[in-house]
């Protein structure tokens, strides 16, 4: 079946044959491998995308149900030449090691800052408690986002 929806501001069409996830379609069909597949059960946040205004785990979104939806992936948050403030902060604080969790953190944190430009440290941690990072121990991520929270106007 054909599913048409908006991804990062562009009209996209996907040919969906079964119950596969939005994550699979983004990665394997639409050439957007930035969202990562690490668990496919909603438990790690590496596949986080914004779907119709809310951050969800795209591995648990049935692609066939995305007809007419609006999706923003990490590829739509910032580009190599123009990084989003969250991306810059993570980079500056050494919050990226293997980086496999990073797209999910970027998407989730960018959304958090949009809704609440000055989250407290506890709010940052809770908002990102669905994003697992196995490398950093979260320390550098916390420092990056706490500094951003203090600085954003």
């Amino acid at each position: 079946m054909i599913v048409s929806f908006t991804v990062n501001g562009e009209e996209r069409i996907a040919n969906v044959s079964g119950p596969e996830s939005l994550l699979t379609v983004l990665r394997e069909e639409l050439g957007l491998p930035g969202s990562k597949n690490a668990c496919e059960q909603g438990e790690c946040g590496s596949c986080a995308v914004v779907l119709d205004g809310a951050v969800v785990t795209s591995c648990l979104v049935m692609a066939a149900d995305c007809e007419g939806s609006e999706v923003t992936t990490v590829e739509g948050i910032g580009s190599d030449r123009e990084l989003h403030a969250v991306q810059q902060a993570l980079l500056d604080h050494g919050a990226v090691q293997c980086g496999f969790c990073t797209p999910g953190f970027v998407v989730t944190a960018a959304h958090l800052f949009e809704e609440n430009p000055h989250p407290s440290s506890d709010e940052i941690k809770e908002a990102l408690s669905g994003n697992i990072c196995r490398c950093t121990g979260y320390g550098a991520i916390a420092r990056a986002l706490e500094e951003l929270a203090e600085g954003t106007a």
Binding site: Q87, L91, G99, F100, T102
Partner: peptide, 21 residues
């Protein structure tokens, strides 16, 4: 020093190619 890691930019933008990509 603690220079920025060169693979950092593609990693924050989702453009870094992992084996799975």
């Amino acid at each position: 020093d603690s220079p920025l890691r060169i693979d950092g930019i593609p990693k924050v933008t989702g453009n870094f190619a992992y084996a799975s990509d």
